[in-house]
C-alpha cells in the first residue's frame, strides 16, 4: 500500500509518527490516571489496606523496576543507533528491550502465582482487586509494546522504517513511567 502524501507533511514540525505517539501517550495518561486515581482515593480513605498491602513482594517489585529501567536504557540506545542509521544494531537493542519485557512478565507471573496460591486473589479484597487490575492493565501494555516492538525490530533489521524505533521507544518509556509510579503505590506504601 502506498503511503499517502499526507503522511509526509509536517506543518507542526514534528514528524507525523511521533506526533501520533504523543497523542497516544496523552490518552494513555488519562486511562492509567483514572485507574490509579481511583486506587489512590480508596487507599487514602482506607488506611487498613496497609494490612493487605504488606503482602506484596517488594523484592520482586524492586527487581522488576530494575528490569524495566534497564529495558528503557536499551530502548533509548536503540534510538541512538537508529538515528545513526544503524538498523541491525537498533534491532539488537530492541530485542534486548523485549527480553526485558519478557523477564518482567515472567517475574510477575511467579509473583502472582505465589500470591494467588496463598489466597491473595483478585476478589480477596478491594486492595488486591486494584493490585491485579492496575498491574494487569500495565502488563497488557507491556505485552502490546513487545509485539509492536517485534515488528519494528524486524523492519529495523533490514534498515527500514528506522524512525519507528524512536516511536516505539517513547511508548516503552511511558510504560516504564507507569511502573515507576505503580511500584511505590503497590509495593512500598505499606
Amino acid at each position: 500500500m502506498m503511503r499517502p502524501i499526507a503522511t509526509t507533511r509536517s506543518a507542526t514540525g514534528i514528524p507525523t509518527g511521533r506526533l501520533a505517539v504523543w497523542w497516544v501517550i496523552a490518552s494513555e495518561i488519562v486511562i492509567f490516571g483514572g485507574l490509579l486515581g481511583g486506587y489512590l482515593l480508596h487507599r487514602f480513605g482506607h488506611p487498613e489496606w496497609a494490612t493487605a498491602a504488606a503482602h506484596t513482594n517488594t523484592m520482586a517489585g524492586g527487581f522488576n523496576t530494575f528490569v524495566l529501567l534497564t529495558s528503557s536504557l536499551s530502548a533509548v540506545l536503540a534510538h541512538a543507533a537508529a538515528e545513526k542509521g544503524e538498523g541491525p544494531k537498533a534491532a539488537k537493542y530492541l530485542g534486548l528491550t523485549m527480553l526485558g519485557g519478557l523477564v518482567f512478565l515472567i517475574v510477575k507471573s511467579f509473583e502472582w502465582t505465589y500470591e494467588i496460591s496463598h489466597g491473595y486473589t483478585i476478589t480477596a479484597n478491594t486492595f488486591w482487586s486494584f493490585y491485579y487490575t492496575a498491574a494487569g492493565l500495565h502488563g497488557f501494555h507491556v505485552i502490546a509494546g513487545m509485539v509492536i516492538m517485534g515488528f519494528v525490530a524486524a523492519d529495523a533489521m533490514k534498515n527500514r522504517e528506522l524512525q519507528r524505533v524512536e516511536l516505539i521507544g517513547i511508548y516503552w518509556h511511558f510504560v516504564d513511567l507507569v511502573w515507576i509510579f505503580l511500584f511505590p503505590l503497590l509495593y512500598i506504601a505499606k
Binding site: A54, H55, T56, N57, M59, H118, A124, K190
Partner: peptide
Amino acid sequence: SEHHAPAADQAHAPA
C-alpha cells in the same frame, strides 16, 4: 480475608 492467608513470609514483615 487475612485468615485465608498464612502469616506473612515475605521480605518485609507487615507493619
